[in-house]
């Protein structure tokens, strides 16, 4: 399979090069097949990807990735989603293939939608799935987005989300990255309209030998906009994770508030956990804050549970799952919740 070198998840404001955090260099397939999307019969964007990747359209994974998809997205792999109250999509990845699907959803003013996207593997074996989602929310529109990664542990996933929020629009998302071996997730929210809101919650479980690379950008342009980014994850022995988080208060975003919290549980002794949470501010009347706690399970937590009769393995399992459940509980769709909890249970059993 021939590949092309691309840069994704580029850090919004670069820092020391020796940290190797400024970007992620990846090799993307030269040839892509359309991903299998269920239910069938969704409205496609036609043969050309330019409907989705016009000159002013980026991707959560970055401009280079948008350009790549613009030129590589296969015919029939671009979808225009209708803003139904509940949209449920399943993407089924096939082993041995590099598949892609791109979606655009425009939610008109005053409407509320829930979009559930489930990624699963048809069989065991290596496969690559590229998913990109472009969202535009009209005045007062609301979208609940759920994305569950239930891919097999040999898979590679690229997932981009880009949302442009109009006045008083609300975007909340819950993403669970617990399946694939390598996960690249990018997310960019343009809070253009006054009083627009974006609240992404992300749970991840990066297991031994797995790699996660995240880039989440919240760009505040309108007045009194707000964001609340929550990351809660687990890194097993030998896992590697990079999280780039950005809250950018542009001039004119007065009265805006941005919060970013990260909670990382380290279950192994040798991990690679890299975090760079940026707050950029060119507006005086704003409040931005970031908090991170990174460490092992506390002795106090373990002692309390052992005093209740649990052995060490059960305590670890309970507390680790609690970290993920904390995010899963935010899903506004019961079926999606049950699916991902069952998947996490299966992973534990393995």
């Amino acid at each position: 399979m021939t590949e092309t070198k691309q840069v994704i998840n580029r850090l919004y404001a670069p820092t020391w090069r020796w940290l190797k955090l400024n970007e992620e260099q990846v090799s993307l397939p030269e040839s892509l097949a359309p991903a299998k999307v269920l239910p069938e019969g969704q409205t496609t964007a036609g043969a050309s990807a330019s409907v989705l990747y016009g000159p002013d359209c980026g991707s959560g994974l970055g401009a280079d990735f948008a350009a790549y998809l613009g030129s590589h997205l296969p015919s029939g792999a671009g979808y225009i989603l209708e803003p139904e109250p509940l949209i449920r999509l399943s993407l089924v990845s096939r082993a041995g293939q590099a598949q892609a699907a791109s979606f655009a959803l425009s939610v008109p003013g005053g409407k509320e939608c829930t979009l559930c996207m489930d990624y699963a593997s048809e069989e065991k074996g290596e496969g690559t799935l590229l998913v990109d989602l472009q969202i535009r929310l009209g005045q007062g529109a609301s979208l609940h987005l759920i994305q569950n990664d239930r891919l097999n542990p040999d898979s590679c996933l690229y997932n981009g989300v880009r949302v442009v929020c109009g006045k008083e629009a609300k975007m909340d998302s819950v993403q669970m990255w617990v399946g694939g071996k390598t996960v690249y997730a990018g997310y960019r929210a343009e809070l253009e309209g006054d009083a627009s809101v974006c609240t992404p919650s992300v749970g991840y479980w990066t297991r031994t030998g797995h790699k996660s690379d995240f880039n989440y950008e919240m760009v505040h342009r309108g007045k009194e906009t707000s964001c609340d980014v929550l990351f809660s994850g687990i890194l097993d022995e030998g896992a590697a994770k990079t999280f780039r988080g950005v809250i950018d208060f542009k001039t004119g975003s007065s009265g805006s508030v941005g919060t970013e919290n990260e909670n990382v549980l380290l279950t192994g002794d040798r991990v690679l956990n890299r975090t760079i949470p940026l707050i950029l501010c060119s507006e005086e009347d704003v409040k931005g804050n970031h908090g991170a706690t990174i460490g092992k399970l506390s002795g106090e937590e373990k002692f309390y549970l052992s005093s209740r009769g649990l052995d060490e393995a059960s305590i670890d399992a309970l507390l680790v799952r609690a970290r993920l459940n904390w995010i899963v509980e935010r899903m506004k769709d019961e079926k999606a919740r049950e699916q991902i909890l069952a998947f996490i249970g299966e992973m534990y059993a393995e």
Binding site: T251, R270, I294
Partner: peptide
């Protein structure tokens, strides 16, 4: 609002048994 203030803190952690905290505020 003519001025600018950015925070760019990086953490690179390769050991498991550690305790790391970070907080940043702008206002």
């Amino acid at each position: 609002s003519e001025s600018r203030s950015d925070t760019i803190p990086a953490m690179d952690i390769r050991a498991g048994e550690v305790d790391v905290g970070h907080e940043a505020t702008i206002g």
